[in-house]
């Protein structure tokens, strides 16, 4: 395994039982793989992004260290893959996983929908509720290569009491159609238009 800047390459395909086997008997002659496996058990911080789209579900789970980050990438019809990237590569790997790309800013007021409307997108086969279909995001959902992504980051707090610091970013949209940040509210889930630039700032700021 090698330490990548940017796109993870030369990872280890995690066929059934492979990760457990590697943990029990890490290779003596692959220090990068050994460091990556160690980080899975004892990371400085963890970031997980789960993505749903018309072609299924994918995910990236990062275990961060100071100089190396282990990432397990999951995608439809493939076995998961363990790879090692530099910590500053996390935003770029995340952006590729979620399909972040140029889209117009859809300048209309936020929309609130029941949480069930969003959940219905996350479970295959995705169902588009009437409220979402009537909103501009509905166009992205009908004809775009849409993505619903949920990112969670967690790290132990400096208090040393076992508590954790966390960040969360939920997004729905599609390259070429628009991006909306999702926030829970008392009435449901609020969809607020945003830009790919603002989302990239959020991703770079998670570790920055």
């Amino acid at each position: 395994m090698r330490l990548n800047a940017g796109t993870p390459r030369d990872g280890i395909v995690l066929t059934q039982g492979r990760l457990d086997a590697l943990r029990k008997a890490p290779s003596d002659d692959d220090p990068v793989a050994t460091a990556a496996l160690s980080l899975l058990d004892d990371p400085l911080a963890e970031i997980v992004v789960e993505v749903t789209g018309p072609d299924g579900r994918r995910a990236a789970a990062f275990a961060l260290g100071s100089d190396l980050c282990a990432v397990i990438l999951s995608r439809p019809t493939h076995d998961p893959e363990l790879a090692a990237v530099t910590p500053e590569s996390v935003p770029a790997v995340t952006a590729r996983t979620v399909g972040l790309g140029p889209a117009p800013y859809v300048d209309i007021p936020p929309l609130t929908v029941p949480e069930a409307d969003i959940d219905a997108l996350a479970v295959p086969p995705p169902q588009i509720s009437p409220a979402l279909a009537a909103h501009p995001v509905g166009t992205a959902l009908r004809v775009g290569d849409w993505r619903l992504w949920r990112l969670q980051a967690a790290a132990p707090s400096d208090e040393g009491d076992g508590s954790a610091l966390g960040a969360r970013l939920d997004v729905l949209g599609a390259r070429g159609y628009g991006w909306w940040v999702l926030e829970e509210s008392a009435e449901g889930v609020l969809l607020s238009p945003t830009t790919a630039t603002a989302l990239w700032r959020g991703l770079s700021g998670v570790l920055g």
Binding site: A5, T7, P104, A196
Partner: peptide
């Protein structure tokens, strides 16, 4: 450049 990703354009 390597690993180019276009993130936004207007």
């Amino acid at each position: 450049v390597d690993d180019f990703q276009l993130l936004d354009a207007e």
